[in-house]
Amino acid sequence: MTADDLDGQQPEAIAFSHERQVPQPVTSWSYRNCREARAAGAAPLYRGQPGYGPHMDGDSDGIACEPYSR
């Protein structure tokens, strides 16, 4: 049996990714607005954190209720 014969008997290669996929937790609630989040001392909020809501992330960068620019 040759090396080519053995290679032909091998199962198809499986591509593995070295990049680890970390699932984002799903939150079932969010603050109504940034004023409410700031009053609770929770701002800024990051995507995946409890209380985060995309409606508070105006630029869709994953950070809601960012500090005011001065």
Rank of each mutant, 00 (worst) to 15 (best):
N33Q: 12
P50L: 01
P23N: 03
Q9V: 01
C65I: 10
A39N: 10
A64V: 04
D5N: 06
D5Y: 04
G48K: 03
T2E: 09
A39G: 03
P54G: 13
W29C: 12
A64Q: 05
A64F: 04
A43F: 04
T27N: 15
M1V: 13
P25Y: 00
L6Y: 08
D5M: 13
S69H: 08
Q9A: 14
M56Y: 05
S69G: 11
S69F: 08
D4A: 15
N33A: 11
L6T: 09
A40V: 00
Y46F: 13
G58C: 05
C65F: 10
Y46M: 12
P44D: 13
V22R: 05
Q21S: 08
D57Y: 13
Y31R: 04
L6P: 00
M56E: 07
A40Q: 02
H18T: 11
R35K: 15
C65A: 11
R38S: 08
T27V: 13
L45D: 10
G41K: 07
D61Q: 06
A3T: 07
T2V: 03
M1E: 12
G48Q: 02
G62W: 00
N33M: 06
V22G: 02
A13N: 09
G53N: 03
D5V: 07
S69I: 10
R32M: 11
M56H: 02
D57C: 12
P50N: 02
P67R: 11
I14C: 02
D59I: 12
M56G: 08
G62L: 03
I14Y: 00
E12N: 05
Y31F: 15
N33F: 10
Q9H: 04
E36H: 09
S69M: 13
G62F: 01
I63W: 03
G41W: 02
Y31W: 09
P50Q: 00
G53E: 07
G62C: 03
Y68S: 15
S17P: 07
C34P: 12
P44C: 12
G53M: 02
H55S: 14
L45Q: 13
P23H: 00
P44R: 08
S69D: 14
D7I: 10
P23A: 06
D4R: 12
A64E: 06
A43D: 06
G58E: 14
V26P: 02
Q49L: 01
Q24F: 02
S30K: 10
M56T: 06
M1C: 11
E19I: 13
Q24P: 01
I63D: 03
A43C: 05
E19D: 10
P67Y: 03
G58A: 15
G8S: 14
E36M: 10
F16P: 05
A3M: 07
M56C: 06
R20C: 10
S60F: 09
R47N: 08
S30A: 15
Q21H: 09
V22A: 03
Y52A: 01
R70M: 10
T27H: 10
D4K: 08
L6F: 11
A39M: 04
C65M: 06
R70I: 11
G48H: 00
P23W: 01
D7H: 08
G58P: 04
A37I: 06
